[in-house]
Design a protein around this nucleic acid. Structure first.
Length: 667
DNA sequence: GACTAACGTTTTTTT
DNA sequence: AACGTTAGTC
């Protein structure tokens, strides 16, 4: 097989990772150590050795990562081989398992997947129904508790908190009644099918003889169990990750998977990639000095291949306004250097709310910028509506999407009617759709409402028949339906600005167009809905093609790199975040800062403020205790005033910063 | 059933 | 400060 990579381009550690082809392998890949290159080379080598591409499975965390990996391998070996491999997320792998085998667990094979917003909608209703109004608890909090329980293998009925348990049981019943599964169920049920049905398990074990898992530090307990079902002896499994970059513990990621890998697979070959090609020694030394404060990690020290570098600046700011001004001015000044591009700069922050002032300051100076992952495409109202229409065309029994569009646009079926229909459906153990179709139910309503319901039922049933019986193009049917109900006109009426009008119109168009695209590739409406439910919201090319300074949360920055990084708001309460201190997860906050620091290739500036506007109120802030943990060999302490040339003798400044450093050390 | 006014809330985010 | 939610009114 033709291949386009050579061992010569790899360092010894990377080479041994590529060479370790058999049995369990764990690659501990520190930040910037050429992880992706190593993994793709390893798979390319696998193909070169004659492993059939169909037998290779690579699991990633996001769809984006999956397509990137496929592309890179395609660049090294043949495109054909790359396309014959399975590269996907855990969840889409599970959909593959379940679309074929879920009937063994008593579900119908045309189950629908509950998205995040579907789940929240369902839980909101359950809270109302179960009298959760007085218990001041939010739907998302309940769902997160249920998710954690599911991941730990706890039965909903056995959840300790009684009220959560009641809700969890009701939630499970609700899903079951709608023949729907949530994201956790995908993993849970796939594991169940594989563990309880030897024939299914053997099919998959024979199908995939070589398994690679990327971003292994982000996997949860359930994903680990699934992996164990999927991989049998002789355990040709390779996991890649970095425990120091585990920042998703709050949503169930188990660092234990990587810390105790040998417990799950026997005698693994462990390879450490510690040679960093990304950052200067100054950046790396500072990052190392921070992460050393975490206990119970896989000991590894990143070595810089790039010596020296600009010192790290830690800048004290009087307030968040000055912080924003300062960064904007620094970017302008930095652009003076020859060959510098806007894309070289990134501003990293802990919470999305912190970006606002930065945005304003950049906009004032006409500095182009791109916000990563702020408003997700699939959270947009019109997108959710149109998808809901598509969902009920595929399966009208899905209550959540049905209720969503029942009166959007308004057609005389309001909340009270929706309530009656829901109650009726529960009493008769059927879906809301069934209730709407049931003359016994509609007979209980006023003639006016009955007429509205009949019209709606005819509308949906008609469209569905055109797809199912007539085999019309689902995209055209959906578009026709939207036109008929004048959906777009209704949405536009609710817009305040022309810009918003255009945005919403585009959203509608994009969903329909995406469906049309799927259909043209021979995929079903069902497949389109699966993909949409599992899609990462990073509305792909759009953001990547955008030019400008990057504004991004620390979480979203993992895996990226920038020449010049500003990390703002290094204050106690933000980083570490108040809530994480309460939850006792300060280690993870330290890793978060570590991830942020290691994004920088050349220059790094950390800032903190004395005061900050918080919820419309001026509050005073304290420098983050993490600052005191940084080794100061390559660190330059300074302040807004000093940089702006305020009067101060060198001695005074030394004393001042000596004091601050002393105070921080005492913390 | 639709519209408006007061109210309360506010970490990170993928599947 | 800004957003979404809810309660009250027409």
């Amino acid at each position: 097989m033709a291949s386009n990579f050579s061992f010569d381009s790899l360092n010894p550690a990377q080479r041994s990772a590529v060479a370790a082809q058999d049995g369990p392998v764990m690659i501990l890949a520190g930040a910037g150590t050429g992880k992706t290159r190593t993994v793709t080379c390893r798979i390319a080598h696998m193909l070169e050795r004659g492993v059939p591409p169909q037998e290779i499975l690579a699991v990633t965390f996001t769809n984006k990562a999956a397509s990137e990996m496929r592309e890179r391998i395609g660049g090294m070996v043949s495109k054909k081989a790359a396309n014959e491999m399975t590269v996907c997320t855990f969840h889409s792998l599970c959909v593959r398992v379940l679309r074929g085998g879920i009937d063994r667990l008593g579900y119908k094979n045309n189950f629908s997947i509950c998205s995040q917003s579907d789940q929240t909608g369902m839980m909101k209703q359950l809270l109302v129904r179960k009298g959760g109004k007085d218990e001041k608890i939010k739907p998302d909090a309940v769902l997160s508790a249920i998710s954690k329980a599911k991941n730990k293998g706890i039965d909903p009925a056995d959840i300790e908190d009684e009220f959560i348990s009641i809700l969890a049981v009701a939630y499970e019943n609700e899903l079951r009644a709608q023949n729907a599964v949530d994201f956790d169920d995908l993993l849970l049920l796939a594991r169940k099918v594989l563990s309880e049905h030897e024939d299914v398990r053997n099919i998959f074990r024979a199908r995939y003889t070589r398994v690679t898992v990327d971003e292994f530090q982000d996997t949860n307990a359930l994903q680990m169990q699934l992996l164990q079902q999927l991989v049998g002896p002789p355990y040709h499994v390779c996991v890649v990750g970095d425990d120091d970059q585990s920042i998703y513990g709050w949503r169930g990621a188990e660092v234990a998977n990587i810390l105790q890998f040998e417990k799950f697979f026997p005698d693994p070959t462990v390879v450490r990639l510690e040679e960093n090609y990304r950052s200067t020694l100054a950046v790396l030394h500072t990052a190392n000095s921070l992460i050393k404060h975490n206990v119970g990690r896989r000991e590894k020290i990143l070595r810089a291949t790039r010596k020296g570098g600009e010192p790290i600046r830690i800048v004290a700011m009087p307030g968040d306004d000055e912080e924003a001004e300062f960064i904007a001015e620094e970017i302008l000044a930095g652009m003076g250097a020859h060959g510098t591009k806007w894309e070289d700069f990134a501003v990293l922050f802990r919470t999305n709310g912190q970006s606002r002032k930065i945005e304003l300051a950049l906009r004032e100076r006409k500095i182009p910028y791109r916000m990563v992952g702020a408003q997700s495409f699939y959270d947009r109202r019109e997108v959710r509506d149109v998808l809901a229409y598509a969902q009920i065309l595929a399966a009208p029994d899905a209550d959540v999407p049905l209720l969503r569009v029942l009166n959007a646009p308004p057609r005389g079926i309001g909340q009270s009617t929706a309530m009656l229909a829901t109650d009726w459906s529960r009493e008769h153990h059927e879906s809301v759709w069934d209730a709407l179709c049931d003359p016994n139910f509609t007979a209980t309503l006023s003639a006016k409402v009955r007429a509205s319901i009949e019209k709606f039922v005819a509308l949906v049933a008609g469209a569905k028949n055109r797809i199912d019986l007539n085999h019309d193009n689902p995209a055209e049917v959906l578009e026709g339906l939207l036109t008929e109900i004048e959906y777009r006109a209704w949405i536009e009426r609710g817009c305040k600005t022309d810009n918003e009008k255009q945005q919403r119109g585009e959203g509608i168009f994009m969903v329909v167009d995406s469906l049309r695209d799927h259909v043209s590739k021979g995929k079903s409406l069902q497949k389109f809905l699966d993909d949409s439910a599992l899609a990462s919201d990073r509305e792909d090319d759009d953001l990547e093609k955008k030019q400008g300074v990057t504004l991004i949360t620390l979480h979203a920055s993992k895996g990226l790199e920038f020449s010049k990084v500003f990390l703002i708001g290094l204050e106690e309460g933000f980083l570490p975040h108040t809530r994480s201190i309460a939850e006792g997860t300060k280690d993870e906050e330290r890793r978060l800062l570590y991830v942020g620091i290691t994004r920088a290739q050349d220059e790094l500036t950390l800032t903190y403020c004395d005061t900050r506007m918080k919820w419309g109120q001026l509050t005073s802030c304290q420098a983050s205790s993490f600052i005191g943990e940084l080794d100061d060999e390559f660190v330059n302490f300074t302040s807004y005033d000093e940089i702006l040339g305020a009067e101060a003798t060198a001695d005074e400044l030394d004393d001042f910063f000596g004091d601050i450093k002393g105070m921080l050390d005492d913390l």
